[in-house]
Design a protein around this nucleic acid. Structure first.
Lengths: 249, 249
DNA sequence: CAATAGATGTCGTTC
DNA sequence: GAACGACGTCTATTG
């Protein structure tokens, strides 16, 4: 751990450069201008921000509020720190797509350089994938007699979440969502049913949108398209009395 | 600026609590377990991470790599810091939706508390909005004789990016994208053209997907649906010799 | 508050 | 690397 408070820019340059080269995480708090050019372009006039440089080359520029960084570079960038004139420049670039982010610090409140030992991965419960597996195990929760034969069935118009047939032998296409859905999901399901109807011309095809809820316009569109809405409870409900509480409480 | 290196948890508790209450940004680097429950649920076993607490209640838990925080709370949460047993707990909650994030620190490498003076907003160029305005000004860049009458025209199946008519009096619906598009955008355009055809039964309707490129399957679907692809250069190209370079270089 | 769609989306997965 | 879709997406905008 290296901590510097109100460092001179020359000292900052050395510490930051060492930190980057050592693959440590680097934090800079200070007054800066940030320019970006690549898929889009941006200018952020001078103000105080927090910048985080990670070992994988990702760079985050955070303002005082918001979840989202105001400027950033994603994983895989090359980051450098040099003195340019009377400011300290953090320059990050990537090749594909060609993108550059430049931050110019006129003053620095604080620098921290440290290593994060962490071999653990997050376990997340309640994703759409969990829901799909649950339905695959117990298709009766959707409809009695339903058989699921494929998960993530790849077709040319996309990937069908769940594919199978009902008790009458009609093909069933399920588009699954873990939260309230809008028009987009109806379109998605429509794409799949259209294609499958074309491919299995002789078979009846049912399209089911399985979600906790859907918007009014989405319901109208769904019905106009001859599709079905199946209300499902998000699987996280069953998690409530489950794994949560692991770790110290 | 308050900086603590390897603080005792009791000292950390006091500094963090003061920092949160004063509306300052708070950074904690240390070994922690993180649990989350809300729209989904997650458990992150013990490891070293960086946690950022912002004045608006947003909380970011960052691991050593990746652009994205491994755990978080968005804007508008209530954050508290207390000692629980032999660990220091950061607890963040929100009401709608009901969500909680708990981080339990067993040791802390460093704490920083500071204020970020920043009245500036980012100016971003090259968004879809910019492109839409450009086309609205010069519809000929899409097709000679094209007239755009509405931007973001709200219909029941969504919002049409650009709406107008061509030199032959056919209605034109444009779906605009700033980057290469896939199936989803074709579906989006199809939704709009279907609705407009229904609403203006006596008028010919053309659907145009304007984008730099589209995937092979998207092209097939587009053609099957009787829609058109118009290749456009992303407007950021024109920015290259423009505003970039503001600020110090 | 609901609805809708964009984002420098990022990320994982599969081909 | 391209394609496809999920994401605890978040965020802005509009009704």
């Amino acid at each position: 751990m290296v901590l510097l408070e109100n460092p001179r820019l020359q000292d900052a340059e050395q510490v930051i450069t060492e930190s980057i080269q050592a693959g440590r995480m680097t934090i800079i708090v200070g007054k800066c201008v940030v320019n970006y050019y690549g898929r889009a372009g941006s200018v952020l006039p001078e103000g105080e921000r927090l910048i985080i440089i990670k070992e994988d080359g990702s760079v985050l520029v955070h303002q005082k509020d918001k979840y989202t960084p105001v400027n950033y570079q994603p994983t895989g960038c090359n980051v450098q720190c040099i003195i340019k004139g009377d400011s300290l420049a953090i320059m990050s670039q990537r090749k594909r797509p060609k993108e550059v982010l430049h931050a110019f610090f006129s003053s620095i409140q604080c620098i921290a350089s440290f290593e994060l030992l962490d071999d653990e991965n997050i376990t997340l419960v309640g994703s759409e994938r969990d829901l799909a597996l649950q339905i695959f195990q117990q298709p009766d929760m959707i409809e009695k007699g339903l058989k699921i034969t494929e998960i993530e069935k790849a077709v040319s118009s996309g990937e069908i979440d769940l594919f199978g047939e009902d008790c009458e032998g009609k093909l069933v296409i399920i588009e699954l969502k873990r939260k309230k859905v809008g028009l987009e999901s109806v379109s998605q399901l429509k794409r799949y049913t259209d294609e499958i109807r074309g491919a299995y011309g002789n078979r009846a095809v049912r399209g089911m949108l399985c979600a906790p809820a859907l918007t009014k316009n989405a319901m109208r569109l769904l019905q106009a398209d001859g599709l079905e809405f199946i209300e499902i409870k998000p699987s996280i409900m069953t998690f409530k009395n489950g794994t949560m509480g692991a770790g110290k409480q």
